[in-house]
């Protein structure tokens, strides 16, 4: 009954020729429409690579990737805002590139900034904003793309814990209000358990799906799930020592 938004089948990726190391190997992953999936794995295991493949920034070496026809919105670890544009104009840029005619842009940008509680900072430039505010502008910009799928690559990793926790709450609220399909990359087990409905663990070298956990079942003991995932992740990492 659920509609699949993203479907990866047998996706493999190497950078360079057939002798270069395999970064991703045989990834099968379906994400349902409206689902919030966290992709978890150690640093360097290929999470960003996988996300870039889904975003269409790179082509897979093997396998196939299906995303909605309009593509996906992406949010990166660094906010990657245009430093010469105000917060509002950054959002307007996304609207413009989406083809929204000029008269509607300003109001829409202000509405999106209001959604991430940044209406007052609309006329400020990125360097005048805190890290958390910049990421919220980036979120508003990603929402401005108006795509059903939102890809997020460790968007909160560089933030302090208090800010990050607020942004978790903010993101969850936005997700609930907008019904986006979210594929969220992180190396932080707590973050994954906190946010996701489903967690997909990637192994390292090559990146393969090493486990999946549902984290939205009723009565689920989050702490024990987190412990279980952490243990599994550590085993994965330790296996690379040999």
């Amino acid at each position: 009954m659920t509609v699949t938004a993203i479907r990866l089948a047998g996706v493999g990726k190497r950078f360079g020729g057939p002798r270069s190391p395999l970064v991703l190997d045989g990834i099968d992953l379906d994400v349902a429409e409206g689902e919030f999936v966290c992709l978890l794995g150690a640093s360097g295991c290929g999470k960003s690579t996988l996300l870039n493949l889904v975003a269409g920034l790179e082509a897979p070496t093997t396998g196939s990737i299906e995303v909605p026809g309009d593509g996906a919105a992406v949010m990166f670890q660094e906010s990657a805002l245009m430093p010469w544009l105000t917060a509002r104009r950054n959002v307007e840029l996304a609207l413009r590139l989406r083809g929204v005619p000029r008269p509607g842009r300003r109001g829409e940008a202000e509405r999106l900034l209001e959604l991430v509680n940044l209406a007052d900072a609309a006329e400020q430039r990125p360097h005048e904003l805190s890290g958390g505010m910049r990421q919220r502008v980036a979120l508003a910009r990603a929402l401005a793309q108006d795509r059903t799928v939102l890809l997020m690559d460790e968007p909160f990793a560089a933030l302090d814990a208090i800010t990050r926790d607020l942004l978790h709450e903010e993101l969850e609220r936005v997700w609930r209000e907008t019904g986006r399909t979210i594929l969220f990359v992180t190396h932080n087990v707590h973050e994954a358990v906190r946010l996701a409905q489903r967690i997909v663990l990637l192994s390292s070298r090559p990146g393969r799906v090493a486990g999946e956990w549902r984290t939205d079942a009723p009565g689920l003991d989050a702490q024990s799930v987190a412990r279980e995932i952490t243990e599994r992740l550590r085993k994965e990492i330790a296996s690379n020592a040999a």
Binding site: M1, T2, A32, G34, E35, D160, A161, I162, D165, L166, E169, E172, R176, H190, V193, R194, Q197, R214, T215, D216, A217, P218, G219, L220, D221, A222, Q223, A226
Partner: peptide, 27 residues
């Protein structure tokens, strides 16, 4: 595979349990 939106409120329990140290300060 098919459990979806209606269980989102369970997130609240998780949020308490999964807390990192610093998150005790969090809302």
């Amino acid at each position: 595979r098919d459990v979806l939106a209606e269980e989102r409120r369970i997130a609240e329990e998780r949020r308490i349990a999964a807390g990192e140290a610093a998150e005790s300060l969090a809302p």
